[in-house]
């Protein structure tokens, strides 16, 4: 009895994670090549065209603009953001 119960729970858990990874993967696919807003933990915001993103939320962007308190500070052609600094990645849906 006790041997059966853990196996069923782990099976359902596994199915759940695969679905959710799909959701995340779909989000990445949805965003690539489109304008996104990336906010970092320190409050700095980066707006640009998303080139590549991975599971660690490492991000490569093009035409990047750096905003501090809503004010444009710097522009970068290409930039790489290390994933540990990322608070969120935000995208708009297609019109």
């Amino acid at each position: 009895m006790s041997a059966v119960a853990p196996s069923t729970t782990s099976a359902s858990g596994g199915a759940a994670t695969s679905n959710n990874n799909n959701a995340q993967f779909n989000f990445f696919k949805m965003c690539i090549g489109r304008p996104v807003v990336v906010k970092l933990n320190n409050g700095v915001e980066y707006r640009g065209i998303l080139e590549v993103v991975d599971g660690n939320m490492n991000i490569v962007m093009e035409q990047t603009e750096e905003y501090l308190n809503g004010q444009l500070k710097t522009k970068y052609g290409d930039c790489f953001l290390r994933g540990n600094n990322v608070l969120y990645i935000s995208a708009q849906s297609k019109k």
Partner: peptide
């Protein structure tokens, strides 16, 4: 307001 976000779980 934001439309879609992927929020980092770290925090």
């Amino acid at each position: 307001k934001l439309e879609y976000i992927l929020l980092n779980g770290n925090h």
